[in-house]
Amino acid sequence: MFTAIRPAIHFGGRWRALAALVVLPLLAPADPGGQITRLTRDDIDLQRPAWSSDGKMLAFSRHEAGGTHIWQYVMDMTATPPVARRLTKRETPDHNGVFSPDGKEMLLTIIPQSGTQGNVDIALIAVDGSGLATVAGDGDGGLSHQNWPSWSPDGSRFAFSSTHDGNEEIYSAKAGGSDVVRLTQSPGIDTHPCWSPRGDAIVFATDRWGGLELASVKPDGTGLTRLTTSPGLDDYPAVSPDGSLAFVSNRDGNFEIYLAESDGSNPRNLTRNPLRDTQPTWTPDGKGVTFVSDRDGLGDLYTISLAK
């Protein structure tokens, strides 16, 4: 079972409790969003927030020690105040973790050996940090760079990006790593897949049309559909329980969180802040979007509720 511990992390020669990261909500207007809740007060760049399906745990990865390490954390949101702990005791980087639908396991990106510049694997691990096992790696010498795992809603498979075939494409595999299926074909970049909660689509970012745009395919790789058409970058798609899209876009000259319908229509700026907002994920109830923002410093986590 998951046991919340009060962790301390080594940073810059001093020990600091991560419990201090958590602060109370800030009430600030946002359009078309509602109340903004600041989840961390870390001032250390955080990356890829991801909720457990019951909303009791929030995962994120953290750049620390002067940017020399990036490690996966899990924060117990039921504690008062919430308490974060490192997921593993690895020396080499691990990050971009996401909870399995039952909340018992996580998929995360690991660097098997530092300094290899490209050998990036995906591993499965219990939420208590035990039983780390590589499920998508370079064991056959062909895979070199796997990243950004996303579970299917039933937990039987996961989608991920890989450079296995010479450029970055989207693949899926069974949870244990077998039955790898290539889902996209493009000479450019296909990345950051998100398996929709309804299980009917995998949304991802692609540069096949210039810039980065969002597209979707069915889980069998058919039915490629373009979802966005905009200047600049549309990236990091997240699909809500009802199929709505959240994503980051710099179409207005600054990285903001946007919302859109499931087909990409009706895009609107959710965050409207002059500093960077990025890497959105939906809260489990679909009523808010959690994201990374520099609005109060460097890369903290916030949740913005959707306006009624």
Partner: peptide, 16 residues
């Protein structure tokens, strides 16, 4: 190198 490659965030981005 980037932190993913045991660096501290340099510009040597052979991947990612």
């Amino acid at each position: 190198e980037a932190p993913e490659d045991a660096g501290d965030g340099g510009w040597d981005m052979h991947d990612r």
